[in-house]
């Protein structure tokens, strides 16, 4: 009856063999099948940024990506940014220091996006950071602190 396919995803440096329907999104595969809940489902229609992950080092939305589509590519989630027990990534540390979140639900997506924002060279000014972080909605309203955190992390990285 069901039309499952076998795929192997490379997530956070580990191969993960999965059997799933082609229509399963990367977001649902990460959360429901791999138990990687750090990538959040906020809108499931590409409008909030909570599901931001890296594919081959670039930030994308996992809710509008099929799991099957990324076979053969490198997927990095918030869990892969720094391993448990290890030192936090400079962007993670900056988010904590600047109080750049409240409820924390958009935070993994914000952090993944911020890592890319800096890597892309789009953290050159507060105005640029604001624009290039606008794909990540934060309803608690941590935006000014997110800008401060990205600025701090960008300076730390350089």
């Amino acid at each position: 009856m069901s039309n499952k396919i076998d795929i192997t995803l490379n997530v956070n440096g580990r191969p993960e063999a999965l059997q799933l329907e082609p229509r399963v999104t990367l977001l649902d595969a990460l959360r429901e099948q791999l138990g990687l809940n750090g990538t959040k489902k906020g809108c499931d229609q590409g409008q909030c940024g909570a599901c931001t992950v890296h594919i081959d080092g670039e930030r994308v939305l996992a809710c509008l990506t099929l799991a099957a589509q990324v076979e053969g590519r490198e997927v990095t989630t918030i869990e892969g940014l720094s391993k448990p027990g290890q030192k936090a990534h400079p962007v993670q540390a900056a988010f904590l220091e600047q109080d750049a979140f409240q409820c924390g639900y958009c935070t993994p997506g914000q952090i993944m996006s911020a890592v890319s924002c800096i890597r892309e060279g789009h953290a050159g000014s507060d105005e640029e950071i604001r624009e290039y972080m606008s794909g990540n909605l934060c309803r608690c309203g941590a935006y000014p602190h997110i800008v401060a955190a990205v600025r701090q992390a960008a300076e730390a990285v350089q």
Binding site: E79, P84, F95, L96, P108
Partner: peptide, 8 residues
């Protein structure tokens, strides 16, 4: 905060 920044 430590849990939230790590997706934990």
């Amino acid at each position: 905060g430590s849990a939230k920044i790590r997706g934990a």
